[in-house]
């Protein structure tokens, strides 16, 4: 299902204008990363996709639904949202109950709930931890529980707010694996991230935001090579892209394979 955002503006009750005219279409199954400086409006934008925030002006459509005409509880059938901080999201006694909470609330029959929970736990490598209280797990695994509890809702659209924050290399790879699996299932994945190397290695489309507006939007290689424009929103290109630029490589490279191929020429 398409996401269509038309001239979206949003002003917080404090008077802070956080979004200043955003227009955007995201097709089904796209993997999109949103980057940009702190306070650029990234989280404010994605909170409009599941109705947590309502446009001050303009509109947001999830498929044929206008978010102003559907409550958050209904939008949850279509859009799953994994919070930046798992502790804002977890409350159940054990991992299994936590992951079952979402699909149960969507009213799915018990068998379907069981199947969805099992699948989400397997994908996030939590199958052994079903009986554990989420708060007895390390922050690394609590992040995976938060992820699993959204995956189990089987929504067409999954939003991840800073999935790799504070995660080590092993868990970043685990998260990349989950995103790849969602891609294969045809899910739309929208990720906010400051981890630009992670962004380069896992996303095909990149949107750079600055001061409530879209600065750049396009294929990852096009966007990530724009060093000067990205700097205006406090983003550096990925490490290997910067190296390629400094070495004067003709094409923009964004991962090891592309870099090594380019310098062999």
């Amino acid at each position: 299902m398409n996401i269509i955002i038309r001239d979206l503006r949003f002003t917080y009750p404090t008077g802070l204008e956080a979004l200043r005219g955003i227009s955007l279409t995201i097709a089904p199954g796209e993997q999109v990363a949103i980057v940009g400086q702190n306070g650029a409006g990234k989280t404010t934008l994605v909170k409009h996709l599941n109705g947590l925030l309502q446009p001050t002006q303009g509109s947001v459509h999830i498929g044929d639904w206008d978010t102003r005409q559907h409550p958050v509880s209904k939008l949850a059938v279509r859009v799953g949202y994994v919070f930046q901080n798992p502790d804002e999201q977890l409350f159940s006694q054990n991992v299994g109950m936590e992951v079952a909470f979402g699909p149960k609330n969507l009213g799915y029959p018990a068998e379907k709930v069981d199947a969805l929970v099992k699948d989400a736990l397997a994908l996030t490598e939590l199958s052994e931890k079903t009986e554990t209280n989420p708060y007895d797990l390390s922050s690394t695994w609590r992040k995976m529980v938060a992820l699993a509890s959204i995956i189990s809702m089987d929504t067409d659209i999954v939003i991840l707010d800073e999935p790799t924050t504070g995660q080590d290399a092993v868990n970043v790879r685990r998260i990349a694996h989950v995103i790849a699996a969602l891609r294969e299932r045809g899910k739309t994945v929208i990720t906010i991230t400051h981890d630009i190397d992670f962004c380069a290695e896992n996303f095909e489309r990149v949107i750079a935001m600055s001061q409530g507006q879209i600065l750049l939007d396009g294929p990852a290689n096009e966007v990530l090579g724009q060093e000067e424009i990205l700097a205006t929103t406090y983003v550096d290109p990925p490490q290997l892209t910067r190296l390629g630029l400094r070495l004067g490589l003709k094409e923009t490279v964004r991962n090891q394979e592309e870099f090594l191929t380019a310098i062999r020429k």
């Binding site: 080590d168 290399a169 970043v172 190397d197 990925p238 490490q239 190296l243 090891q256 090594l260 310098i263």
Partner: peptide, 20 residues
Amino acid sequence: AGFGISRYTSTARKAKEMGL
């Protein structure tokens, strides 16, 4: 040991194997 390392290091290590 599962530590994150810089892409510069991992890529140069690979490049070294390839003689680059």
